[in-house]
Structure formats: C-alpha cells, structure tokens
C-alpha cells in the first residue's frame, strides 16, 4: 500500500471564504473539511490518451476560426511542464484551458461586457503532456475585463487551467497570469491567496528564447500537482 498523497497545504491555497470575493460568502463551507489519508479511490483517476486530441485542440488561434481566418490579438505560445511536488514531470496529464478574447470578452451567454466577440475565437483548448510532462498551446493574449463584485473590479489578463494528473487527489483548477501586469495585485480573486510567494507561482514569465520570430511571443508556466509520499520516501533513500 502506498503512503498516499502529500496533504494539501491549506494556508497556501485560498481559504473557502474570502469576503472580498463576494460569491465565496454563500458558497464556502462553514465546517472544517474532514481529513483522511488518500486511498485507492483518490490515488487512481481517469486516463486520457493522446489519440483523443484533434490536430487543432492546442491552437486557440485557429481551432474556432473560419477556414483561412485567425483570432485577433497578440499572438502567444504558452508552454511549460506539469510536475508533481517531488519535481517529477507528470506524463499524460490532461490540461484544459479557457480564456476571454483579446478584448476581454468571453463567448458565453451570461457574459455582459460590452467588448465585442471575435467571430474567429472560441476561447478553449486542450493538450496532454508528453513523457516529460511538457505541454504547449498557441493562443492570443486575453484582455483584462471588469466584473460585478466591487464597484470597479477588473480581472487581470488570465488563462484558466483545469488539470488532471494520474490521481483524482491531484485534480486542480487554477489560473495563469502575465508577468508585469499591475492588475494582478488589485484582484480580489488573486487576493484570495494570502501568500505573495504562492501568487507568484501563478505568474507566467515571458521567455524570449522560445518566441517564434515575427510570429508569436512565448510565456512559460509550470504547474505543480500533489506528489506521492512514497516517492518522497524513495527519493530520500536514494539521496542518502
């Protein structure tokens, strides 16, 4: 029997209740969550094969565009690795992403922002990590957008990420921000994370070495999923 997954550090994650993010007030459990070590049901999870992906699934610039058309906006590549807490790449991890268009508008029936839709931009994509845990997708840089929370709250430019590792215990949804954006530090959703060091791990870094000249700039963003305690133990043994 494995030692199970490393417990989540709940001071590193945002707490359920963060009053500055108003929707969390009525959607946050009051009782403390019940702690149990992971067992087989949490240490297994669905498997997604590379064969399920379409050729354009990781290209948000064209995956919704009319033939010969492309989405509008600053062209970027987002690349990085999905790792576990032990620093090992997670192969076969499904990464699903969604985002607003370059004007900050989502393609969604509940969206009310006056910025226009881009007819050639759907706003979603997906990719599965390779043997070393690497992933990459191409998109346009999303715009910031206002949202109904405080009287004048704006989301910094961001891309939403949903990630499956190899175990359901690793299931994670988070958001990626862009280096140098001053809006990051004004956002009540970002501010639900109390530690600056934790927030910084969600900020993608511009990587000019990976840009495609005259085409797209590159941002680097690594995602860390929970690690297995047994791996931790094995590593200690190896290292001694």
């Amino acid at each position: 029997m494995s030692e199970g997954y490393i417990r989540r550090d709940r001071d590193w994650h945002p707490p359920a209740l963060h009053t500055a993010y108003k929707t969390s007030v009525m959607r946050s459990p009051r009782a403390a969550p019940l702690s149990f070590p992971t067992s087989l049901g949490e240490e297994t999870g669905p498997v997604f094969g590379h064969d399920m992906l379409g050729a354009l699934d990781n290209d948000l610039i064209t995956n919704f565009a009319q033939p010969g058309q492309m989405a509008l906006g600053p062209r970027i590549i987002v690349q990085g690795r999905v790792l576990d807490e032990n620093g090992r790449g997670v192969p076969g991890a499904l990464v699903e992403v969604w985002q607003a268009n370059a004007g900050g508008r989502y393609r969604h029936k509940n969206e009310s922002y006056l910025a226009p839709l881009d007819p050639n931009f759907g706003g979603c994509g997906r990719v599965i990590t390779d043997a070393e845990g690497r992933y990459e997708f191409r998109t346009i840089q999303p715009g910031p957008y206002p949202w109904p929370n405080g009287p004048n709250d704006w989301r910094p430019a961001h891309i939403h990420f949903s990630v499956f590792g190899q175990a359901f215990a690793q299931r994670l949804i988070t958001q990626m921000y862009f280096d140098g954006d001053p809006m990051i530090w004004q956002c009540p959703i970002v501010g639900s994370i109390s530690q600056t060091a934790a927030i910084e791990t969600l900020i993608a870094k511009l990587d000019m070495t990976q840009t495609i000249p005259m085409d797209a700039r590159a941002y680097h963003f690594d995602i860390v999923l929970r690690g297995n305690r047994q791996t931790l133990f094995e590593n200690r043994q190896e290292g001694s």
């Binding site: 945002p14 969604h108 939403h160 994670l172 639900s192 969600l202």
Partner: peptide, 13 residues
C-alpha cells in the same frame, strides 16, 4: 521539493 500550484476559482465560465 515543489509546492503545489495554488488553486483559483473555476469562475463563471
């Protein structure tokens, strides 16, 4: 040893 990426809300979309 790395820290797990902190979660952010799935949001309305």
């Amino acid at each position: 040893y790395l820290k797990e990426s902190p979660s952010q809300t799935a949001g309305p979309y």
